[in-house]
Amino acid sequence: GRAVTDHPANLGQWLSRSQEEEGVYYIVSDWADERRFREFEHSEGHLAHRTRLHPFRSGGSMTTMRVVYAMTGAGTGQ
């Protein structure tokens, strides 16, 4: 994970496992902006990271999103 989260434009990353599909995981990462994410995506460091993970993947897809509104839940204590 540090190959991603150590990048100065990365704001965080989460790994989630599907409760409905065995062996399916989702990664969500948050970036300061799309331009710097794309720079990272095409960097030698990221390509090396993907190469190491490739044997564990059976497929995948990527979607970019923009948060339009966020609300803090009562459980956060904030």
Rank of each mutant, 00 (worst) to 15 (best):
G73D: 15
G60H: 07
L53T: 05
R35Q: 09
E44G: 03
R57Y: 10
L47M: 03
T72W: 03
S16F: 13
W14A: 14
R50S: 10
S43L: 07
H49K: 02
R52V: 07
F56M: 09
G59L: 03
L47Y: 06
V68N: 02
G75V: 13
P55T: 06
R50I: 08
S61H: 01
G12P: 09
V67Y: 09
H49E: 09
Q78A: 11
H49M: 13
F37H: 04
W31Q: 00
A32H: 08
E20C: 15
T72K: 12
P8N: 07
P55F: 13
E44R: 02
G73W: 09
R2K: 07
D30V: 14
Y26Q: 07
R57I: 13
E41P: 01
D6I: 10
Q78F: 11
V67F: 11
T76V: 10
D30C: 15
R52C: 04
G60V: 02
S43C: 08
G1D: 15
G77Y: 07
W14K: 01
E21D: 11
N10Y: 04
Q13A: 14
A48E: 04
T51Q: 02
E22T: 13
S43T: 00
Y25S: 07
G60A: 06
R36A: 08
N10I: 06
V4A: 01
T5D: 02
T64I: 14
H7Q: 09
A32C: 04
A48Q: 09
